[in-house]
């Protein structure tokens, strides 16, 4: 038997990260690169803190735009072995009171936009006959945020208890199952990653409260993001499809 550790390597693989400008984006890109992948990016703004092989401006607006993304990916990357869609980690407008147009605009970008990307890129990856699609979200996809974690940081409460946040973050959990049903017979997989908040990015009061409720007594690190995305992107997970993997130190396991 071949050393199975080589199956974790992304050496020789091409990855496209969409929406890398949102939370967890730089860590996802750097993690894929550290595992050996070449990474291209697409989104509403280039990411400056990590290098990329190429960037495509992409705003999750229309089927034509998504088709253009897929055509660009085919031309510049040749093969897309890994697609990471990170739009669900976008900032939703803070607070609970929004008018319908604001609700609709956010839902169109995140949920409609995710569909457009997966539809166009899935079609392309199905034609290739292989590929791993990864939808990136946070732990709000699996549980409600806990108001008690926000005592002492009202600004963060406004951000996380925004009207649309749970809807957007959770819209991938069953979508990966649905998409896996199409992609499976074409040799492609579709999974989601649900991350805990990253250490050092929130007020101390929140981080202390979150850790107090967590089973592993810390928040997520860049290494945790890197390891998880590498696993789902790589051949180490070839028989895994349709799952949402919590990367959260056990927070949602309680």
């Amino acid at each position: 038997m071949q050393n199975f550790l080589t199956s974790f390597s992304l050496s020789g693989k091409n990855a496209l990260v969409v929406g890398g400008e949102h939370a967890y984006g730089p860590e996802l890109i750097a993690g894929l690169q550290a595992a050996g992948a070449r990474v291209w990016t697409a989104g509403s703004a280039p990411i400056t803190d990590v290098p990329s092989e190429g960037f495509f401006p992409y705003h999750h607006t229309s089927a034509d735009e998504a088709d253009a993304l897929a055509a660009w990916a085919k031309d510049t990357m040749g093969t897309v072995d890994v697609l990471v869609e990170n739009v669900l980690n976008m900032d939703t407008a803070p607070g609970w009171d929004h008018d319908f147009d604001s609700i609709n605009a956010q839902a169109q970008t995140a949920m409609g936009g995710m569909i457009l990307t997966v539809q166009a890129m899935g079609r392309m990856m199905a034609a290739q006959g292989h590929g791993s699609v990864i939808l990136s979200t946070d732990y709000g996809a699996l549980v409600g945020y806990d108001p008690h974690n926000y005592e002492g940081c009202p600004e963060l409460y406004q951000r996380d208890f925004s009207l649309l946040r749970g809807y957007v973050r959770g819209s991938c959990v069953n979508y990966v199952r649905q998409a896996a049903g199409f992609l499976g017979e074409h040799g492609c997989r579709c999974n989601a990653l649900a991350f805990a908040p990253m250490a050092g990015k929130q007020p101390q009061a929140f981080e202390d409260a979150f850790v107090a409720h967590n089973q592993i007594k810390r928040l997520a690190t860049a290494e945790d993001i890197a390891a998880a995305v590498t696993f789902l992107a790589s051949d180490a997970s070839v028989y895994i499809t349709g799952i949402t993997l919590p990367v959260d130190g056990g927070y949602t396991a309680k």
């Binding site: 569909i115 749970g166 199409f182």
Partner: peptide, 28 residues
């Protein structure tokens, strides 16, 4: 094709999570 409409799965999946999110908000 093997998979049904994208929008139904995305909408109902979002709703499933949002029920928990909204319950967190409204509970207080």
């Amino acid at each position: 094709v093997g998979a049904g409409g994208h929008t139904y799965a995305v909408d109902k999946s979002g709703l499933t999570a949002w029920i928990r999110h909204a319950a967190s908000y409204y509970g207080q």
